[in-house]
């Protein structure tokens, strides 16, 4: 199934990056925003022939304060938790309108986009429904690991130990005391043809994955690492550096799940200590050595589990 859909797939290289932009410059993102960067790359890869359904969140408010809009492709925002449902409606409507010859027959990529809150928390049900129904669309989760738009509140994607305004460290708390929800695994559990994680530090990898997600038929899920200088308390020029460290420390592994088979797209042979990643961010500043060690062990364990899944797929 994948092979046929990707017959004409050509990898992006730094020399073949498309000039097309879906979001015009002049939007209102914070300085050094990693999220809008990740989104920009993904949409560049998908190309002009798309329709975007956006959840409420940072990307929605920074691009659409009426009467201005940064969107150069058709875009709709309805509410917080329903981007996947709105995208389902657009996809199904176009399908029937093409069948009834009321619009020209042409494959258009339907993109649903939301933050980690809009995906892992309030929007999880709508996402699950849309994946299960098998709509031909690409879901992009822009994971900045908290509700940044409302002022840095914890989500189920906030990492263990992180400080947010609703997971503050204190005498009785280390900060966030739950481990990050594994949304790509939840997406993969729906048996959809394509799931991938990607990081703006590895931009050709991110763009290739976005292009594949658009080319394959059926639901595709992209989980994009999206550094937030404002919420993570790091310098505005560090988004890419931190993105790279997240991969090199195995905190945010890059992989694909193609028809259920895990493929590590970047194997980390000589990992850096997690501490190097944590220390650049104010949200982890309060952590003691013991907690950092606890995080290190968990990261190692999860990475090992991923390696085993990939090895299993390779052996098949």
């Amino acid at each position: 199934m994948m092979d046929a859909a990707l017959k004409d797939f050509k990898r992006f290289t730094p020399k073949t990056l498309p000039k097309m932009e879906a979001i015009a410059q002049g939007h209102r993102a914070c300085q050094g925003c990693g999220e809008v960067l990740a989104l920009r790359m993904a949409l560049k890869a998908i190309g002009k022939n798309m329709i975007v359904a956006s959840a409420t969140g940072c990307m929605e408010i920074i691009t659409s304060p009426y009467p201005q809009t940064a969107w150069q492709v058709p875009w709709i925002h309805v509410a917080f938790e329903n981007a996947a449902a709105v995208a389902s409606g657009i996809e199904a409507a176009r399908k029937v309108l093409m069948r009834k010859r009321r619009i020209p027959r042409q494959r258009t990529t339907i993109v649903a986009m939301a933050g980690d809150g809009g995906t892992a928390d309030i929007g999880l049900q709508a996402l699950s429904g849309a994946l299960e129904r098998g709509h031909d669309f690409v879901y992009i989760c822009l994971d900045n690991e908290a509700y940044m738009n409302t002022g840095i509140q914890r989500s189920s994607c906030t990492p263990y130990g992180a400080m947010t305004t609703t997971s503050p460290p204190g005498k009785m708390s280390i900060g966030q005391h739950t481990w990050k929800k594994n949304v790509p695994a939840i997406a993969a559990a729906h048996g959809i043809p394509y799931v991938a994680t990607a990081s703006p530090a590895y931009y050709t990898d991110l763009m290739n994955k976005a292009k594949k997600a658009a080319m394959i038929k059926g639901p595709a899920y992209l989980h994009l690492y999206s550094p937030c200088p404002t919420g993570w308390r790091h310098a505005g020029d560090l988004a890419i550096e931190i993105s790279r460290l997240a991969v090199k420390t195995k905190v945010f592994p890059l992989y694909e799940v193609v028809d259920g088979r895990y493929i590590l797209t970047r194997k980390i042979k000589k990992p850096k200590p997690v501490k190097e990643y944590l220390k650049l961010q104010g949200r982890f500043r309060h952590l003691d050595e013991e907690t950092i060690e606890e995080i290190q062990q968990r990261v190692d364990r999860e990475y090992e589990a991923l390696v085993r899944k990939a090895a299993l797929a390779e052996a098949e």
Partner: peptide, 27 residues
């Protein structure tokens, strides 16, 4: 000749309808 979208909640039912109508379908 229609698409019947069997959604997972009424919240998604009306959300699908909004997306569909915005795409130009009689919903």
């Amino acid at each position: 000749d229609a698409e019947f979208v069997p959604v997972e909640s009424e919240h998604s039912a009306i959300s699908v309808c909004v997306g569909s109508s915005a795409a130009g379908a009689r919903t």
